[in-house]
Design a protein around this nucleic acid. Structure first.
Lengths: 158, 158
DNA sequence: GGTCGTTTCTTGACTGCTTCAAGGAAACGG
DNA sequence: CCGTTTCCTTGAAGCAGTCAAGAAACGACC
């Protein structure tokens, strides 16, 4: 649980009003990286007695727009959010259980990567988003049995 | 329009039955890279008199599963498909008009990139998916007026 | 502290992409 | 040519996310 005063300061410095739903959601995103919206609604409701799902959607949008949180959405997954912003890190996603983990970016500053061979015609690139696809250890060792300890990402799994 | 015999050969070598919807969709994906499903339904219907939208969804799933087409889905966009597979290339996406273009991968073979600093814990990576975000030339020069010549990607644009 | 204007949250309905399900049609091996 | 298997059609449903109108909360100013 992050210091409320710090969260409040973050909101204010982003030019946002400080409201209880915003504090709750922001704290939840800090506490649990890579959660989806539904889970964040739940997490916000443990902090507050009641929040509408619409409020959480609104808050997440505002926080994303102001850069306080980052939204990621690997294929086959719904939107997920994290509070680690500004360091241009990347993500590892497990193909079978959907687990996500962070990887530091080698180059550091965005766009950490530029299209190779400067062939690209007329594009001004400001960010390179990288997703590493593979299998986490538990799924790599037990291929057919996706672990249930992490939340699955793919919807249409047979 | 790709040679039908060639498309047929591709289907067979992937172990798939050759049907008219599959040929039509596969040809459409070859002809128009980065189209979304709705546009592909339209493109398939110019090749065939009638195809159900469900058939196109089914076909796209099968083609994706067998690796004959690749599915991409930048944030804020619906699913899009391309027939350029196996070369592990990447994509440039314009933030304002949603235009997508291809970039060759420098390294060539997948995973063209490995997580830097081998810090990542216990992940077997088989692919690195890179999306370069930025602005295409027309949008970079006219920031406030997204070009309508390319199909927009974002839905909730004000 | 109290008051006012603006922003934000609540409630409820709705959209759009995608998938599910059942039955008929087509592909392909024999 | 026939039977089995797979695939397409039709129609409906699911689900994440959005829209809209009114009530509540924030915070600036007095």
């Amino acid at each position: 649980m992050t210091d409320p005063a710090e969260l409040e300061r973050d909101l204010r410095s982003a030019g946002l009003r400080v409201t209880r739903p915003r504090l709750a959601v922001l704290d939840a995103v800090h506490a649990h990286p890579h959660l989806d919206t539904e889970a964040l609604i739940g997490a916000a409701r443990t902090r507050l007695d009641a929040v509408s799902h619409q409020a959480v959607y609104d808050v997440l949008r505002v926080l994303t727009d102001t850069g306080l949180v980052r939204r990621i959405q690997p294929q086959g997954s719904v939107a997920r959010y994290e509070a680690r912003v500004g360091d241009n890190h990347h993500h590892l996603v497990c193909r079978s259980c959907g687990a996500i983990s962070d990887v530091d970016c080698a180059t550091g500053a965005a766009p950490c990567l530029t299209p190779s061979g400067d062939a690209p015609p007329d594009f001004v690139v400001d960010e390179a988003e990288v997703i590493y696809w593979g299998r986490c250890r538990s799924c790599a060792t037990a291929p057919a049995a996706p672990s249930t300890t992490d939340r699955p990402a793919e919807r249409g799994n047979p």
